[in-house]
Simulated scan of single mutants.
Amino acid sequence: MPVDPTCPVCQTAEIICGKWTLLLIRDLAEGHSRFCELERSLQGISPRTLSLRLRALEEEAIVERHTFAEVPPRVEYALTEKGRALLPLIDHMRSYGERWLGGTCANAADEQLPPVAAVA
């Protein structure tokens, strides 16, 4: 699929359309999560894939990694402001799926994302 580097839709799709990426953003909408928590919530994702997705989202400044100087070390991931700006897209996808595809969220936490401030 040819990608137009000047098209904002193509640019956004290039970042978020990787397998698991939108589900990872959805799960991080609830706040800080540790790697093992994300791995549990995304049943079927391999640790390598999760690590690659998190790293790619960090590089795009969508996810930030917090490392705590503890023994054993603790690492948490959270959405940045840029990442939270993607949450309305996920809300719209949920609404579309419910209306047109008959889908429902299996996880009660999926039904309500935290409120998102308007993005200019």
Rank of each mutant, 00 (worst) to 15 (best):
Q43S: 03
E70K: 10
L28A: 09
D27W: 06
V116K: 04
S41E: 15
G18H: 09
L87I: 07
V116M: 05
C17H: 07
A56S: 10
A13G: 10
L22I: 15
H92R: 13
I45F: 03
L54C: 13
E58G: 05
A56W: 01
L87R: 01
P114C: 11
H66E: 14
V75M: 07
A108D: 11
W100Q: 12
L52E: 12
P73T: 10
L42F: 13
E39D: 04
N107R: 11
A120G: 13
T12F: 05
Y96P: 00
R74A: 15
E64H: 10
E30F: 06
L89G: 11
T80A: 07
R53E: 05
E14F: 06
S46H: 08
W20S: 00
P115M: 12
L22H: 04
S33I: 10
P47Y: 00
L57K: 02
R99I: 11
G44L: 07
L101Y: 11
W20T: 07
G83L: 03
R65Y: 04
L113A: 06
R40A: 15
T21R: 08
A13W: 00
L28Q: 07
E98I: 12
T21A: 05
G102S: 10
P115E: 08
G83C: 04
A78V: 02
C7W: 03
G103S: 06
F35R: 03
A69G: 04
L24Y: 01
C36L: 13
L87Y: 14
R40G: 10
A13I: 03
V75Y: 06
E30N: 06
V9A: 10
G31A: 12
G18E: 02
G44F: 13
A69R: 12
A85N: 01
R99E: 12
T49Q: 08
I62F: 03
D27Q: 11
L79P: 04
V3R: 14
C17Q: 11
A117L: 12
G97C: 15
A106N: 09
P73E: 11
C10T: 09
I45E: 01
E39C: 03
A56C: 04
I45S: 00
C10M: 09
C7A: 09
E98A: 11
V119H: 07
M1W: 14
P72D: 09
L22C: 11
T49W: 06
L57H: 01
